[in-house]
Amino acid sequence: MWAALEALGFNTPVFLAQLINFIILFGLLYLVAYKPIMRILDGRSQKVRESMEQTEHIKQQAERAEAEVARQIEAAGKEGQELVARAARTGEEIKKQAQQEARQEGEALIARARAEIQHERDEAIGELREEFAGLTIMAAEKVVERSLDKKAHRELIDRVLEESDVLKRG
């Protein structure tokens, strides 16, 4: 067994030397290769993760902003509609009021006119009556002057009165 190993080249000092070589290489590579490379790989993946998170964050923010804008637009639209509706309503009210006022005014005007007409008519009737009374008196004077008989006198007065009644009623 031992002889076979030696024939293959086994040699305890050389074996130990190669073992130590490996351990030295392990130590040195750990210092100059693995540690820095792990650090940089970890750093990079961290960075990638961070930037992805940041991207996600920004995306969310953008979405939120977009939603906000949409909401505001909608609100503004609603407000505008409301304004228009209110304006229309106000216009309608104003129109109605104006109509009513106009009607009232018209009615008042008509009433006043009517009252005035009535008044003028009454006045005219009054004047007419005065005139008629004057006429009657004149007629009576004339009759008196002509010395009518009593019966004719009466007929005359009745007729005048009847006529004046007709006048008053008309």
Partner: peptide, 12 residues
């Protein structure tokens, strides 16, 4: 190609 090195690695 030295028997000792593979052996050392195998022991490790």
């Amino acid at each position: 190609t030295d028997f000792n090195l593979p052996l050392a690695l195998a022991f490790v």
